[in-house]
């Protein structure tokens, strides 16, 4: 891996002084962001070819917003991502709480398994299962698939919050007159909320740009944005693809920023 090499390089040059470190850091960031920058730049290029800069245009965005298939796929993607994130948040929260409560190692391994499993494996096995159960492939099957691999991320985030929480808080709530439901609603839930939201946003980003698993579980007429982009690229990488990629990138970036900003302080105030 080149980025890893650069990291080692940067460590090495740290002893030689600041200039080497900064140069290495710049190289790493270039390596990470240059391909993305190219896509963004060419999405504004007034040429059919991704070869040379001709001039600035918003034509490709204009075209994109008139492309009915693309718009429908985008709408589908957002809908799937929202529902999957929501369902994964609820189930993942329950799973995270259970892992904390019962303190069983195998329990967390079981929930977190799909996180570590190769996507291709999950995709194939889900396809097999849907066939066996006679589930029609479509939006519903995609949502089920996305929920299954997103639960682990939410559970992980929630469990980390639980572990950092004083267990006597719940007892204190009960002691002071709160029913089990009230103590969950007024104490546990607000304290877990940063974890749940971070996990939920994570699930949203994972769902909206998932390709492999969606590829196996999508049916006719239930295309998502990544699938649509793939089918367009099969012919040629058009500037239109650059435009939609740029928008997807923007959305992901906003969500990542949101996740990193969510801290207990931010929520409290």
């Amino acid at each position: 891996m080149k980025s890893e090499k650069s990291l080692i390089l940067s460590k090495f040059s740290a002893s030689r002084g600041n200039k080497g470190v900064i140069a290495a850091a710049v190289l790493v960031y270039l390596f990470l962001y240059l391909p993305l920058a190219v896509v963004v730049i060419f999405s504004f290029n007034d040429s059919r070819l991704n070869a040379e800069w001709v001039g600035f245009t918003l034509d490709w965005y204009h075209k994109l917003f008139n492309n009915r298939d693309m718009l429908q796929a985008a709408g589908n993607s957002v809908l799937i991502a929202c529902i999957s994130a929501l369902m994964a948040s609820v189930l993942g929260t329950l799973a995270g709480m259970a892992i904390h409560r019962f303190r069983q190692k195998w329990l967390s391994a079981l929930v977190l398994g799909p996180v570590a499993m190769p996507d291709i494996l999950i995709g194939v096995s889900l396809l097999l299962m849907f066939m066996l159960l006679n589930v029609t492939l479509g939006t519903v099957s995609i949502i089920l698939a996305h929920v299954s691999f997103c639960i682990g991320f939410v559970a992980l985030a929630v469990q980390a919050r639980m572990a950092g929480m004083d267990d006597s808080l719940i007892e204190a709530a009960r002691d002071l007159g709160a029913s089990p439901w009230q103590s969950f609603r007024l104490i546990t839930l607000p304290l877990l909320l940063p974890g749940i939201i971070a996990g939920g946003l994570m699930a949203f980003t994972l769902s909206i740009d998932d390709f492999v698993i969606t590829f196996f579980t999508a049916g006719v007429g239930s295309s998502t944005l990544p699938l649509e982009i793939y089918s367009m690229v099969k012919i040629a990488v058009t500037p239109e693809v650059n435009a939609v990629s740029t928008l997807l990138m923007l959305l992901t970036l906003v969500l990542i920023l949101a996740i990193s900003r969510i801290s207990p302080q931010a929520l409290r105030n």
Binding site: D166, S168, L169, E171, A172, A173, I187, P190, L191, P264
Partner: peptide, 8 residues
């Protein structure tokens, strides 16, 4: 013992 004040 830990006071258990609700932090939020």
């Amino acid at each position: 013992q830990s006071y258990a004040l609700f932090p939020h």
